[in-house]
Simulated assay, not measured.
Amino acid sequence: MRSMMPRSILCAVLLVPAFAMAQDTETAAATSAPAAVEAVSPGNGLISAAPADKGQIVFFRESKMMGAAIGFKVREGETELGKLRNGKYFVVAVEPGTHEYAVQGETKDLLTMEIEPGETYYVKGSLGMGLVAGRPNLAPSDEATFMGMSKKLKLAK
């Protein structure tokens, strides 16, 4: 009959450092989150008002464990507007009119938007299951959804 003692010791040796690291990460996130919010411009606390002659779009991606290592580029035509990584957001000012935004991974997703001057629009990026790398998706969203996630979002560089 085998002894359970070696397995128990192995589990304890592996789990104790994991719990300590998780607590350190939570403590660091709790102490650094308010500073990030305070350092950003007025408006709704994170996003400044759109210029009167242009519209602006806030692209954001929720912080999730699944697909955390995968990022994707948001493009309009051949122009790269920004990179959407896990838990990041960026803001783009655009001319009024019809615009088409694309993301590409295993598949390509297109989002067409009609932009009005002085308005702010929100677009949520997400990553679906794919065979190899995942399927990026862009979907219209709203300020309430963005603000609900804002404590876990950081401005993309």
Rank of each mutant, 00 (worst) to 15 (best):
A28F: 08
A29V: 03
A29K: 12
A30N: 08
A30S: 11
A30I: 04
T31D: 12
S32D: 13
P34D: 02
A36S: 14
V37K: 14
S41V: 08
G45M: 04
G45H: 12
L46Q: 06
I47L: 05
I47C: 06
S48N: 10
A49L: 12
A50H: 04
A50G: 07
A50I: 06
A50L: 06
P51G: 06
A52K: 12
G55A: 15
Q56V: 00
Q56F: 05
F59Y: 11
R61K: 11
R61G: 13
R61Q: 08
R61N: 11
E62T: 13
E62K: 13
K64G: 10
M65R: 10
M66K: 09
M66Q: 09
M66G: 09
G67K: 03
A68Q: 13
I70S: 06
G71C: 03
G71A: 14
E76V: 08
E76H: 08
E78K: 10
E78R: 09
E78L: 07
E78S: 04
T79M: 07
T79E: 14
G82F: 05
K83W: 11
L84R: 00
N86D: 08
Y89A: 01
V91K: 03
A93M: 11
V94D: 02
E95T: 13
T98P: 08
E100R: 13
Y101E: 04
Y101W: 14
Y101F: 15
Y101S: 04
V103F: 07
Q104M: 15
G105H: 04
T107V: 12
T107G: 12
T107W: 14
L110G: 03
L111F: 01
M113K: 09
I115M: 11
I115N: 02
E116V: 08
P117D: 08
E119A: 14
Y122M: 05
Y122C: 04
V123F: 01
G125N: 09
G125P: 05
L127E: 02
